[in-house]
Structures are given as C-alpha cells and as structure tokens.
C-alpha cells in the first residue's frame, strides 16, 4: 500500500463519515416524532454543515491557524507576511461558521422555548399526538 493510496482512503473515509452523519441526522429530523429528538438531530445536522465549511478551507499540513504570530511591536516585513499567507488556512469559512454557531444557538434556544410552550398547551411533545389534539 502506497502512502498516496492510504491518504486517498483517509480522505474518502472522512467525506463518507461526514455524509453518513448528515444522513443519520436528516433521518432523525424527518422520521422521529418527538420534538426534543428532532432538536437534537437538528443541532447535529448544523454542526456537520459547519464542519464541511471548515473542511473546505483547510490546507494540507504543515499549515498554521489564521493568526499572525510574528512580532507585534514593530511592523512585520513583507517576507514574514508572505510566509504567513502561504502557510495559514482559509480564515473566511471560520469567520462565517463562528457567527453561525452562536446565532444558531440563539435560534435553537427559541425553538426550545417554543417546544416548551407546545408542551404547556398540549401536554405532549410527540408530533403525532399534537396533530390529533389540534383544534
């Protein structure tokens, strides 16, 4: 087995595992009748989407985080900056995912409150029961 083949296998496994996680969580969102279970599946789904976004911006090791670690008291030289730009990973997906996680958490909290309200009004969080009790 050559190193290239092992590397290709690992790449494929990462992709397939993430696609599998998306499939499992989508199944949870669609098929599970319990609202709390749906929330758990929904957060797994958004987290997996975030992982994919970060995965796109990754650069093959040796790479560094997108934080410049040279001296800060003097202006950096252009050589230092070019070396940093050619070794760091993509910061744009990280910036987008950063806000997506916090905002997604706030929206999930709203969903949790609405679920709580559904329980107070209907006495159940099972979607099949809620449908029967409507009206």
């Amino acid at each position: 087995m050559s190193d290239v083949a092992i590397d290709l296998f690992l790449s494929n496994f990462i992709l397939i595992a993430i696609i599998g996680t998306i499939g499992v969580s989508l199944y949870g969102i669609v098929a599970k009748p319990n609202l709390i279970k749906k929330i758990i599946a929904l957060t797994i789904f958004t987290d997996t989407a975030n992982v994919i976004a970060i995965l796109i911006g990754f650069r093959r090791p040796p790479s560094v985080p997108p934080v410049f670690t040279g001296a800060l008291t003097r202006p950096p030289t252009l050589e230092e900056l070019r070396a940093f730009a050619s070794s760091a990973v993509d910061p744009l997906p990280q910036a987008l995912v950063l806000t997506a996680i916090v905002i997604g958490m706030a929206v999930n909290l709203l969903i949790i409150f609405i679920t709580l309200q559904v329980f107070r009004l209907y006495g159940t969080v099972d979607m099949r029961r809620v449908r029967e009790l409507r009206g």
């Binding site: 590397d7 290709l8 790449s11 494929n12 990462i14 992709l15 397939i16 995965l55 911006g57 990754f58 650069r59 093959r60 997108p66 900056l81 070019r82 940093f84 730009a85 050619s86 760091a88 990973v89 993509d90 910061p91 744009l92």
Partner: peptide, 17 residues
C-alpha cells in the same frame, strides 16, 4: 470522490496577506 485539501482560494490569500 478524491483527495481533500488542494490548497486554498485566492480570496484567503488576500485576507491573510
């Protein structure tokens, strides 16, 4: 499928530089 991580986009290089 294929190998992952084939460099970053030019936009990333712009931001980093």
């Amino acid at each position: 499928l294929g190998p992952l991580f084939n460099g970053v986009r030019s936009l990333a290089e712009f931001y980093l530089l």
